[in-house]
Design a protein around this nucleic acid. Structure first.
Lengths: 248, 248
DNA sequence: TAGGATGATTGGTATGACGAATAAGGCGGA
DNA sequence: TCCGCCTTATTCGTCATACCAATCATCCTA
C-alpha cells in the first residue's frame, strides 16, 4: 500500500495531505472533516495512522476534535504561512502586555536617553496620520522603542514577541476592526503622557502611565465586543498543547 | 487503568508524564526511553495511545524516534523560539524575570486556587532535596506553576521561555556553579514566603514577595562573580522539528 | 406540536498480529 | 586469537478488528 519515496512516516504524509486540503479550501474552516473511517479509505491507511495524523494537526491548532461528533477545521493556514506561530487569545495578550510593558516602561524611565525621548515624541506625533496602517505602525514602534530603552535585550525581545503574536492573531484583527467601528480613536494624547512620564525619570510614574494606557485599551476592546464568542474557539486550540506542555 | 476523571485525552496524560520524566532527569538526554510495549505496562494504556503520546513529544522536538532501535531523548527545544538571540546575558535574563515574574505573581494572587497553593507548598519542600538537580527542578516548577496560576497562557509561556533561555545559556550555568561554590543556599524560606503572600490574595503583597526573592537572587549572583565572557555552546536544532514544519 | 426515547454515527481505546529496520550475539574462517 | 558474516531477538511501523462512550438525528408518543 505504500507509495514510492516515503521519506518519513506514514502519518506525516497523511497530515501533509490533510493540511494541504485545508489550505486549498477543500475542507473549509468550520466544516467537519470526513470521519476517521472514511479517511481510512480515502488515504489508504489504517485508522491508527489517520488518528496520528489528526493529532499532529490538532497539536498545530489546525483542527479541533469533538468526541462523538467529528474533527472540525479551526483555521486555514495560507500556503507559505509561518509554522509554529501559536495563535492566542487577544485578551490574554493584552493582559500580558498590561503587566509586562508597564514594568519595561518603569525600567526604561531610569535608563532612557534624551535622544530616545525625542524619537518617542516624533512617533507620538506620527499617530496623527490619516493612514490607519501608518498610525498603527507608529503605535508599534512607540511601544517597542520603550522596551528597547530598557537596554535589556530579553525584555525588548519579549515585548516584540507579544506584538508579533498580535499581528498573527486573526481574532485580534477582528476585535481591532470592531473597536474601530465603535469609534475608538488612536490614543496619541496618552502616548504623550507616557513620554512625559518617562521624562521625569521616575519609574513609578512611568509605570503608572503605561499601565493606565494599556488598561484603557483593554477596556475599550472589552466594551466593543462580547467576549464569549471569540474566546471559546481559541481556548480549545491551546488546550491540548498547553495541557501537557505546561508541566514540562 | 489509573484515573478516569482525566480531562482531555489519554495520550495527553501520557505525554505529560513522559515529558515530566524527561524534565526531571529520569530519562536523561541521549538515553533511550523504555520500549513502547514497556511504556504500555508502565502507564497502563495501549500501544496506540503510547504512540500518540510519543508523536506529540516528537512534534515538540523532545524526542527522536529511530525505527527498529528506540525512542531517544533530545535536547529540549524552546517553544516557538525566535532564531537568533539564543544565548543571552544571565543578568539581563534575571532582570527580566525580576520585572515580569513579579507581575505574574501579583496577577496569580487574585486567581490562584487553594489546590495550586498546596502544590506550591509541596514544591517548596522539595527544594530541600539533597539532589541538586532535583532541587533546581523544583525551583523551576515552583516559578512556572505560579505563572500558570495567572490563567493567562501568554504570561505562562513567556515565563517558561525565560527559564528555557536560562537553561540554554552556558554563561548562566557557570554563574550558577560559581554561586553555589560561594555558598549560596537554595532559598526555600523565600519560596515559603511567596506562597504565604499568595495566600493573602493581595496582588501587592505577592508582587513584593516575588520581587524581593528575585532581587536577592540577582544580588547573590552579582556578588559571587565578575562578569566574564564564555565561549557559547552549540544548541542544535532538532530534526523532528524540521520535518514537522514541512507538514504544515 | 412538543418532548423524550431510540438507534445510527463518530471518536476513544484496547488487543493482537505481521512486516521491516536495527542491534546484539554466535559461528566459522583466517 | 581475531575478524567478519549471519542468525536471531528486539524494536518501531502499520494494519485489522472490536467494543465503549459521547453525540446526533430520527421517530414515536403524549
Amino acid at each position: 500500500m505504500t507509495n514510492k519515496a516515503d521519506q518519513g512516516r506514514l502519518y506525516e504524509r497523511v497530515a501533509r495531505e490533510l493540511a494541504a486540503r485545508i489550505a486549498d479550501g477543500t475542507y473549509p474552516v468550520g466544516r467537519r472533516l470526513p470521519s476517521e473511517r472514511e479517511l481510512t479509505q480515502i488515504h489508504g491507511v489504517s485508522r491508527p495512522t489517520v488518528r496520528e495524523a489528526i493529532i499532529a494537526l490538532e497539536l498545530d491548532g489546525l483542527v479541533e476534535v469533538r468526541t462523538g461528533s467529528g474533527v472540525y477545521v479551526l483555521l486555514r493556514v495560507p500556503p507559505g504561512g509561518k509554522a509554529g506561530a501559536t495563535d492566542v487569545g487577544p485578551f490574554e495578550l493584552l493582559e500580558a502586555r498590561h503587566a509586562f510593558e508597564s514594568e519595561a516602561c518603569a525600567l526604561a524611565a531610569s535608563r532612557i536617553t534624551e535622544e530616545t525621548l525625542g524619537e518617542l515624541d516624533q512617533l507620538a506625533a506620527e499617530m496623527n496620520s490619516a493612514d490607519v496602517a501608518m498610525a498603527e505602525d507608529a503605535d508599534r514602534r512607540f511601544h517597542l522603542l520603550i522596551a528597547v530603552a530598557t537596554q535589556n535585550s530579553v525584555m525588548a525581545s519579549t515585548v516584540e514577541e507579544l506584538w508579533d503574536a498580535r499581528a498573527r492573531s486573526p481574532q485580534y484583527k477582528l476585535l481591532s476592526a470592531k473597536a474601530h467601528a465603535a469609534g475608538v480613536a488612536p490614543r496619541i494624547d496618552e502616548h504623550r503622557e507616557i513620554v512625559a512620564a518617562l521624562r521625569t525619570r521616575k519609574p513609578e510614574v512611568a509605570r503608572r502611565a503605561m499601565r493606565q494606557h494599556l488598561g484603557r485599551v483593554l477596556a475599550s476592546l472589552l466594551a466593543a465586543t462580547e467576549v464569549q464568542e471569540i474566546e471559546r474557539a481559541r481556548a480549545k486550540v491551546a488546550a491540548a498543547r498547553q495541557r501537557y506542555a505546561s508541566v514540562v
